[in-house]
């Protein structure tokens, strides 16, 4: 990879890490673990399933926090506080800047994933030792790790969409709102599409609109492998490969469009 992109990524990573959002996320991971330790035995009999779901959600929520409290304000601040000038007044093209920023955030998200995975795995292990009778029948550790990795991967796909929105809109508030809406849509578009397709009362135009939206927004629901991690429910053939390809192509397209729009934009 281009040396300049790596330098920008490193700068972006360092700047992000020092904002201490990551400490907040680590604290969140620990609080979730403590909550899991205290409350889950009261919830039900199927404790191991609850703890796995709970900790996977902590991973997701942590990644989301990084995006909403670190990446998004970082991007908005680049324009508002003109920090982008610092990088762009160097012999750096705007494309390199975008890629560097994206890879920097990717590194931060990865660190967050590792930090959140530690209490998650410990908690699951603890519960499995404490309640061996409730260990789900087809549970395997690598499945849990894969599921948490795909949560991180979904966060990356979502981040690429945030970049895209940011390159279109000027107002920071609008970008944040659009990002929240996109997240909600992204989580559910697949379910909504299935419901719509099965519906007999819905008009063709509405159906087409939903299908269109499912092509535009990132289908984050696809990356939810909870049932695979907890119950070992079989995934369709090559599902993970398809997910990787889908995510990678979505990110590439989003980032390329972002670069194209950002190149034409007045800063």
């Amino acid at each position: 990879m281009n040396n300049i992109i790596l330098r920008i990524a490193w700068l972006s990573f360092n700047e992000g890490i020092r904002q201490r959002t990551i400490y907040g996320v680590s604290a969140f991971g620990l609080i979730m673990a403590a909550a899991a330790y205290t409350f889950i035995p009261f919830i039900g009999f199927d404790v191991c399933r609850v703890v796995i779901d709970f900790m996977l959600m902590a991973v997701s929520a942590g990644c989301l926090m990084i995006i909403f409290f670190l990446c998004l304000p970082g991007l908005i601040g680049d324009i508002r506080d003109q920090t982008v000038y610092f990088v762009l007044s160097c012999p750096v093209s705007r494309e390199e800047y975008i890629l560097g920023r994206f890879f920097g955030f990717t590194m931060i998200l990865f660190i967050a994933l590792v930090i959140l995975d530690v209490p998650a795995l410990l908690m699951v292990k603890l519960y499995m030792m404490k309640y061996p009778g409730y260990v789900p029948l087809h549970f395997e550790w690598h499945k849990l790790l894969l599921a948490s990795f795909f949560r991180f991967y979904a966060a990356l796909v979502f981040l690429s969409f945030v970049f895209l929105v940011w390159s279109i809109m000027e107002s920071g508030v609008l970008v944040s709102i659009a990002a929240i809406i996109a997240y909600l849509i992204g989580q559910n578009i697949n379910t909504v599409k299935n419901i719509a397709m099965a519906s007999k009362t819905m008009g063709i135009a509405a159906k087409k609109l939903i299908v269109f939206a499912s092509w535009i927004f990132p289908n984050l629901g696809y990356f939810n492998l909870n049932t695979y991690a907890v119950y070992g429910v079989k995934l369709p053939e090559y599902y993970m490969v398809k997910l990787l390809v889908y995510g990678l192509s979505y990110m590439s397209i989003a980032i390329v469009i972002t670069m194209f729009l950002f190149k034409r934009r007045d800063l």
Binding site: M57, S60, Y183, L184, Q187, N188, V192, G221, N224, N226
Partner: peptide, 8 residues
């Protein structure tokens, strides 16, 4: 529709 991945 609201809960998404947090449904469980």
């Amino acid at each position: 529709a609201v809960c998404g991945e947090f449904a469980p």
